[in-house]
């Protein structure tokens, strides 16, 4: 119990929370764009895992930044199927989303299976070093935990600012919101609903892929099947928990990561509590936040419904 009084315990947990949050931030921000525009992307898990594998396979022979970018493009490629099938051909979004998740897991598993010799070398990258923010990272206790991270984390925070701006200050962002709320009304005002939804979905594919790439290149470095371990679905939890706000998604991702790290850490504090109970902590916190925020949260009214334009 005495560990709980030590500052290092908490600083380690905060740092862990930020590391665990990083892939979630990319993925959940992308998905927030899509959902604000009315597209329920259950293929996020698929985008992430295909981004993870592609980033590794490119980064191994070349460089991490290139791999990172390709990871995003791979996610976008998978998302283009969502565009084709759901947005353009009006197939049910839930069905296509699940289909794309299976497709992503299957494709990555198969590529890994076929390109790895048993007992041979797997593709691998070494993990990035931390980039400390000067001065701030020297603050005692929390300094290093908050201000000493890899560039994937810093980039994700930069992305939050850009995405927040795009969502609330650009024409695209406002049109996306309009399209997600009431596509008929938006169309009546001359907004090209399908185009906006297409763009939002591709953004979510790209960022989902980047999330997988950040997971791979930032904290794992070597592929295993099912490696994303439902993080795509956790990103969905984060978005709803954050009531479809970009800033909220970033904070929600951190909150989730923090409590996940806390669960790991408490194993050595409460030795007798079963690990399953500790692992339930972040989900329980999500439920509490969800319940509290339900007063003001409002789901985009057009979420999950296809828009069929008048021919």
């Amino acid at each position: 119990m005495s560990q709980l009084l030590e500052a290092t315990f908490w600083s380690a947990t905060v740092a862990g929370g930020m590391r665990l949050a990083t892939p979630l931030i990319y993925a959940s921000i992308g998905e927030t764009f899509a959902q604000r525009a009315g597209v329920l992307n259950l293929g996020l898990e698929g985008y992430m895992i295909i981004g993870a594998l592609s980033s590794l396979y490119v980064a191994d022979p070349t460089s991490a930044p290139l791999g990172f970018l390709v990871g995003g493009l791979a996610g976008m490629a998978l998302a283009s199927l969502m565009v084709l099938l759901s947005i353009r051909l009006f197939a049910n979004q839930v069905v296509v989303g699940f289909g794309l998740t299976i497709l992503g897991i299957g494709t990555t598993g198969y590529i890994f299976h076929e390109t790895t010799d048993v007992g041979g070398r797997d593709r691998q990258v070494s993990l990035p070093s931390e980039i400390d923010i000067p001065l701030l990272s020297d603050i005692p206790w929390l300094g290093d935990a908050v201000f000493g991270h890899s560039w994937y984390t810093w980039l994700s925070l930069g992305l939050v600012i850009v995405a927040g701006f795009v969502a609330s200050r650009t024409i695209f962002g406002l049109q996306a919101k309009a399209v997600g709320e009431d596509p008929d009304a938006a169309a009546a005002k001359g907004v090209d609903v399908l185009r906006i939804r297409t763009q939002a979905t591709l953004i979510s594919g790209f960022l989902g892929g980047l999330g997988g790439a950040a997971l791979m290149l930032g904290s794992v470095g070597r592929f295993q099947p099912y490696l994303t371990a439902n993080r795509g679905f956790i990103a969905l939890i984060v978005i709803i928990m954050a009531s479809w706000s970009i800033w909220g998604a970033a904070v929600g991702a951190f909150v989730f990561g923090f409590f996940e790290a806390l669960g790991f850490n408490l194993n050595n504090v409460f030795v007798d509590v079963p690990i399953e109970g500790l692992n339930a902590i972040p989900f329980f916190v999500a439920l509490v936040i969800l319940t509290v925020s339900a007063r003001w949260a409002r789901m985009p009214r057009g979420l999950g419904q296809n828009y069929v334009p008048t021919v």
Binding site: L81, L85, G99, I102, L103, I105, G106, T107, G109
Partner: peptide, 12 residues
């Protein structure tokens, strides 16, 4: 994994 791909394609 290949069987998953085929099943996913058919589902789609």
């Amino acid at each position: 994994s290949l069987s998953d791909i085929i099943q996913a394609l058919l589902l789609l």
